[in-house]
Design a binder for these strands. Structure first.
Length: 530
DNA sequence: TGAAACCGAAACAGTAGTCA
DNA sequence: TGACTACTGTTTCGGTTTCA
């Protein structure tokens, strides 16, 4: 059955009220409103300005259709009661009418009719407890009611985006431009909601879980990854399908067109294998992930499905999960050649000081080709080559200060036997052989500035990195401006986001003054000043 | 023969739910 | 409120197999 906006607000409210942390106690409308915003952040996109849940509709729905006046003494079948008093708002401190709601979880213990606002004092209002509790209003993946609310929100948001898009096109065609049409009152769209939602085809891709940080982490490699995970997965499935074409592997391989990056037949075959398994897993994920079906079970099923087509090179879901880890960040498999993957490695310092040394090493390798090993070369370096270089250095005056002499002598005294992790002896890191420690001390790393700071410096300004907290720290309602720009971006067709030039043009459009007008930015900044 | 790929096991991190 | 458990996913280690 289709849901109207008001009934969706009600349903969202009920799932939160059922939480023992918030049931059986009076909470003011502002607290409920904040809880709903925290638990269902996407619900705000069903409102008029995308900035927040429509609190007017929420309060009206609760008081008019769902609850009973606690002062009346009447029993409410839903177990929901309301009361209101004129006093200072617990959040703003300003005098006015403040609504309170109470959910009786037992349906048998209705609250005592309150005589003053002190009887319904909200324990969470503007308190540390409220801040702490808000973080606990998180998604419960196993709750069917919450999943239903999330699907409905997704459907409503999709419909609203579609309507806004059509309105924008109409306004542009009429010559008015901008998003003025978005300000139109849509309170009376309940019937439209009913009609549209009736036609809305819900599937697993409408699931709220796809908007979660878990999805971002699992499929894009970062909790804060930008972009629609479903859209990106669909695009990547398309790219992985191309692997089966001639030279199709290039569409999913890092540095595929670099010099010397050509793969041999086996490497091409291996990329193809990875693509087949991952493509199947992604397709299954779009069908099932999030509805109590985890990523590992999807990988197991993908292996079984691929097996039906005669492929059996992978048997463990871990392997497919590893393929995903390598692929997910930018939709490319790392090049199998180490030097191409990481770029040309830096020349060792000792080779810069002694350019004849690599020539001698090559000669040694050729002479001992029949029984050459790394250990053999290591012994040769330590016992013959480096002592010879030290002797050469000693022929010069002041050789003890010569950097080349110090380097060569160091290799004799402390032959390299490095550990990639921090090697510890008696609980203390052995700094000389711990590569991680040595890398951390390199000035290149220690003095590296972020890209943002580098660009800022180039433009003649300084960038001060502050602590990461709420976006409102930035002031001027910048989060709302970004939210509107992002909302507009998400409504654009995929074709506008493909190719670099199109993407840049779209980003310019999203951040243009046509979309973010002065009036709109000023409106956004108002809440930040209060 | 060494490197890469595969894979099992264990440790660890983060989150949610339960209970006293 | 804190301890505990369950679940999911990641990282690391180490053994085996396969490939160049």
């Amino acid at each position: 059955m289709a849901l109207t906006k008001k009934s969706l607000y009600m349903l969202a409210w009920c799932t939160i009220a059922a939480n023992p942390l918030f049931s059986d106690k009076w909470l003011c409308a502002e607290t409920w409103y904040r809880l709903i915003n925290a638990r269902y952040p996407t619900l705000r996109y069903t409102g008029q300005d995308n900035a927040s849940v429509d609190r007017g509709q929420l309060t009206t729905a609760l008081t008019t259709y769902y609850s009973s006046d606690a002062a009346s003494g009447l029993e409410n079948p839903n177990g929901v009661y309301y009361a209101w008093f004129k006093h200072d708002d617990p959040y703003t401190g300003k005098p006015g009418r403040v609504h309170y709601f109470y959910y009786d979880s037992t349906k048998e213990n209705k609250p005592t009719p309150p005589r003053s606002w002190r009887d319904v004092a909200d324990p969470y209002a503007k308190s540390v407890q409220m801040v702490e509790r808000r973080v606990q209003v998180v998604r419960n993946r196993n709750n069917a009611e919450e999943a239903k609310v999330e699907r409905s929100i997704r459907a409503l948001v999709d419909k609203k985006n579609k309507d806004d898009n059509e309105r924008l096109i109409k306004a542009r065609n009429a010559g008015s431009g901008g998003l003025d049409g978005m300000d139109e009152d849509d309170d009376d769209d309940s019937n439209e909601d009913d009609k549209s939602n009736g036609e809305e085809k819900l599937n697993n891709q409408n699931h709220m879980g796809w908007l979660s940080s878990e999805a971002g982490m699992l499929f894009l490699g970062s909790k804060d990854a930008d972009g629609d995970v479903v859209d990106i997965l669909q695009e990547r499935i398309g790219n992985l399908t191309k692997v089966l074409q001639v030279n199709g592997y290039k569409s999913v391989l890092q540095s595929a067109d670099d010099d010397g990056a050509e793969l041999n037949d086996h490497q091409k075959w291996h990329i193809g294998q990875k693509a087949i398994y991952l493509r199947e897993a992604y397709k299954l994920a779009l069908e099932k992930w999030g509805n109590q079906v985890n990523w590992m079970s999807i990988c197991i099923e993908a292996i079984d499905r691929v097996k039906e087509f005669g492929y059996s090179s992978v048997t463990s879901p871990r392997t497919v999960m590893d393929y995903n880890k390598a692929f997910r960040k930018d939709g490319l498999f790392p090049h199998p050649c180490y030097t191409i993957r990481l770029g040309k490695p830096p020349t060792p310092q000792v080779f810069e000081h002694f350019p004849q040394l690599p020539v001698r090493i090559k000669d040694f390798m050729l002479k001992n080709q029949a029984h050459f090993s790394v250990e053999l070369l290591r012994t040769e370096l330590q016992q013959d080559m480096f002592p010879a270089l030290v002797d050469e250095c000693k022929k010069s005056d002041g050789y003890e200060q010569d950097e080349g002499y110090v380097l060569a002598q160091h290799y004799i005294d402390k032959p390299p036997s490095y550990s990639t992790v921090e090697k510890k002896v008696d609980g203390k890191v052995v700094e000389d052989i711990s590569l991680r420690h040595m890398m951390g001390k390199c000035t290149d790393f220690a003095e590296e500035v972020s890209q943002l700071e580098a660009i800022g410096k180039k433009l003649g300004c300084s960038v001060i990195i502050t602590t990461k907290y709420h976006a409102e720290y930035a002031g001027e309602g910048i989060e709302y401006s970004w939210g509107l720009a992002k909302c507009f971006y998400r409504r654009q067709p995929l074709s506008k986001k493909k190719k670099k030039a199109n993407f840049f043009a779209l980003v310019d459009q999203c951040l243009s003054q046509e979309l973010l007008t002065k009036d709109m930015v000023r409106k956004f900044s108002k809440p930040c000043l209060s």
